[in-house]
């Protein structure tokens, strides 16, 4: 579903690569957690997948579409929620959702059904006629999530989805992601919350200084770090500290 081959990105004027020849292969029906310390290259990777940044080298394929060759096809297969969803503040919630529905060409009946479903779930029905500028961060995140799921994307990408959410919303987000995968889709998300990744993901990848230093199920990571019965937190700390050593 998502394939990255030798993907590299260096920002102008930066000394080192933000993403250093990254390889990833994520099959359909998987929840993949993308972990890493601040500045490791998680958001840069995500931005390249969704077409907000152009890789300097390498190839990214989403649902068989090459992100550089056929960006429209690749984007059609994606739903994306950024870490701090900056949505047009002077649109109302429903205007935003209609815009998403139009662009992704979601038929009217199906659109209405999905919008009603998610708005009810996120308790946004009463606010959907308000301007987005009046929404809290959590409300904006829920609205962005609803918009991103309207076309039932084969690949659902979220950047730090749990940041700023209350426990109930966080639980709902996880439920939505699980449900999306049960329908045969794939979820790729970055997070700092290791507990979530541990309990929730089928596989995790750890990126550090732009390089993928570990990738696999929790068991595979334990083997890789030679720490039996360790928590993901310990494994993460050990691997990233090893990555720091020259």
């Amino acid at each position: 579903m998502l394939k990255l081959e030798r993907v590299a990105k260096k920002y102008k004027g930066a000394g080192r690569y933000a993403v250093h020849y990254l390889d990833l292969d994520i099959p359909r029906g998987e929840i993949f957690g993308f972990l890493g310390p601040n500045g490791a290259g998680k958001t840069t990777t995500i931005k390249m997948i969704v077409g907000l940044l152009e890789p300097d080298q390498g190839k990214i394929q989403v649902n068989g579409f090459d992100v550089t060759e056929d960006p429209v096809g690749a984007k059609r297969s994606c739903g994306f929620v950024p870490d701090n969803p900056e949505l047009y503040p002077r649109l109302t919630g429903i205007e935003y959702l209609n815009l998403m529905g139009d662009v992704y060409q979601v038929p009217g009946d199906l659109r209405k059904k999905r919008i009603d479903y998610y708005l009810n779930m996120f308790e946004l029905t009463g606010a959907v006629g308000d301007l987005i500028q009046s929404y809290s961060r959590g409300m904006r995140q829920k609205l962005a999530l609803t918009g991103a799921l309207l076309h039932n994307p084969p690949l659902f990408i979220l950047d730090e989805p749990m940041v700023g959410l209350d426990p109930k919303s966080s639980h709902l987000f996880k439920e939505v992601m699980r449900e999306h995968v049960r329908e045969g889709n794939t979820v790729f998300f970055s997070t700092h919350v290791l507990e979530v990744a541990e309990k929730f993901c089928d596989r995790v990848g750890i990126i550090h200084n732009g390089k993928l230093i570990a990738c696999g199920t929790l068991e595979e990571l334990r083997e890789q770090s030679q720490q039996e019965d360790s928590s993901l937190e310990k494994i993460f700390l050990q691997l990233t500290e090893e990555g720091e050593r020259p």
Partner: peptide
């Protein structure tokens, strides 16, 4: 909100 909610309908348009 109340006023806008009344207008808040699902509508399809060409891209």
């Amino acid at each position: 909100a109340g006023k806008r909610r009344a207008k808040g309908t699902v509508k399809s348009r060409p891209v």
